[in-house]
Design a protein around this nucleic acid. Structure first.
Lengths: 324, 324
DNA sequence: ATGAAAGCGCTAACAT
DNA sequence: ATGTTAGCGCTTTCAT
């Protein structure tokens, strides 16, 4: 059998309460006792049972993370930072991939609650506002402002949109495409689109908006989208892609069509993901690390019952590289 | 307060045992009773406490996943599939990023054990064989054969190495570089290197092997490595990169140096990750999805006390694309 | 400073 | 078919 606190108590010749006390370092313990207890634990290879602890304390030190797709570099990098800070503060991470499937997202929320997680970071948003409101668990959202009462971490999508569009205008593009995933998802990312529209509307400039119908991240789908864009609008000379991954597709398609980047077509991406192949891409960099850090920080503060800002919008940065 | 099984029992007018029974659908329950219980649960918005269940059953339905870095696309994609199958079988995933830090990896193992996970999938391997042997928990490793007694899932690294090297030879490369991360990590990936050496040794061919010293995945480090390679060996006309990410760095450096790919330098990668920018890359594709699926499957079988194969080597596939 | 005992929410013999 | 009872391993009042 597995060694429990009781075995240690018997071995040392004290009560379980005392063992629990030294385990949690509460109350007055003589150094001699402490030493004996630690020795016994060492000797018997004791490992505390977190499940029992959590049940008794009503606190699990686990946080749930729900995102659309961990294999997408943006979320991969975000998750890396979230894990880092969670671990640093003694929290474990339960990873939930929704694949932007509403049913799975809902099931995961119930599962997380049943698992008694102390809080949830939501980066996937397929449900209705009402459903989110009924979660009743410490919550921080990424990139979607669900309601005034749920804290949200995002970066400045509107400014990012302006920066990217202005860059293309400054580079004298005459017909610009805005390319994105599904805009109906109510994400703050839509503001990039709005900023784009606003900027190009005033100018004597052609523009076109194209989005995928799918909610997922299918590279094949992206490929078709890009191909279609250039078929329908061969005179495009500037593309604002709402993710770096999409931008890479655009560059690839340009290469296939023999269009020189940036001479014939200028391309600006979004996200600032770090990955081979994006080094030379002009893009709007989101502070992914900072976003992950704050998401954890605010969630933990909320768990601790402290007040936290309900809206956090971090600055973005335009990176001008070789594709514009 | 939170609703418990006891509240339901009182409401329905039966004992908690009965409620537990319908919750787990064990024994004989009259339909009428079931219905009443479900109604009460619905009405009171009851949510079972998985912590209590796990403690009592001595089974948590959580599996731990330890990998070096979730932001690396190979692991991101692997994790996506692992999560998918785990979820499908009613298991939750605890994500642990080791960052190839030995201390963190060890701490995570203890943490997972303390959290009573039912098993661990290990994709990070910085500790000694002896330490792994002492884990005493259902275990499946990815890409490292720790001992004959611990099941390992991998793909055929040796054949992959042969395929990639032969491709470069077939394309008449005269001086080939093998580029990789740290080879000391005892990973099966080292077999790619061995296969490479074996193939080029017999031929009248120049070759050079270069590896990073670092244990992490630093893109900057990769960049330096590649730059250095071409400075020291400007006559390289073929590169076998042991990951697609590295291969992308090579291609980028070639572009910077004005070397045409594939005309002047042929590049073959490894992994077959799906991400913008790798579409045109010649590479050796690992069956990432299948590997993830089997890792989960074998872990669950092991948890169930069944016998499973101790060594699983899946076939790889050469994808000949535009960079060779 | 240390212990007894109740309890966290649920499961599982064993009874009836 | 349903109930009684004793845990699961740990924490936490309340005593002493």
């Amino acid at each position: 059998m597995v060694v429990t606190i009781k075995d240690i108590a018997e071995k040392v010749g004290v009560s379980v309460t005392t063992i629990s006390r030294v385990l949690n370092n509460r109350g007055y313990l003589s150094d001699d006792l402490k030493k004996k207890v630690y020795e016994a634990m060492e000797e018997m290879n004791y490992q505390p049972n977190e499940l029992a602890r959590s049940l008794s304390r009503k606190k699990s030190n686990v946080i749930g993370l729900i995102i659309p797709d961990i294999s997408h570099p943006f979320f991969g990098q975000m998750t890396k930072h979230i894990e880092f800070y969670a671990y640093k503060h003694g929290y474990k991470l339960m990873l939930c991939n929704s694949l932007l499937n509403k049913k799975k997202e809902k099931e995961y929320i119930d599962l997380l609650r049943a698992s008694q997680v102390d809080g949830i970071i939501m980066g996937s948003h397929t449900m209705s506002v009402k459903e989110y409101m009924s979660i009743k668990l410490p919550l921080v959202t990424l990139d979607r402002q669900i309601s005034k009462s749920i804290p949200c971490i995002s970066s400045d999508n509107y400014s990012g949109g302006i920066l990217a569009t202005k860059l293309l205008l400054r580079k004298k593009c005459r017909k610009i495409a805005y390319l994105s995933g599904n805009l109906r998802l109510n994400l703050l990312a839509k503001q990039r689109h709005d900023a784009f529209i606003e900027q190009v509307s005033g100018e004597d400039i052609g523009f076109v908006v194209k989005q995928t119908d799918l909610n997922g991240f299918k590279y094949k789908e992206y490929e078709n989208l890009v191909r279609q864009l250039f078929e329908e609008h061969p005179d495009i000379d500037g593309v604002f892609a709402s993710s770096d991954i999409l931008a890479l597709q655009v560059i690839k398609e340009c290469r296939r069509l023999g269009k020189a980047v940036p001479d014939q077509v200028k391309v600006v991406g979004y996200d600032g993901i770090q990955i081979g192949g994006t080094d030379d891409l002009s893009t709007v960099e989101q502070p992914i690390k900072k976003m992950g850090e704050l998401a954890v920080k605010y969630l933990l503060r909320q768990i601790a019952g402290e007040e936290i800002p309900l809206e956090t919008i971090l600055p973005v940065k335009l990176l001008e590289k070789g594709t514009t």
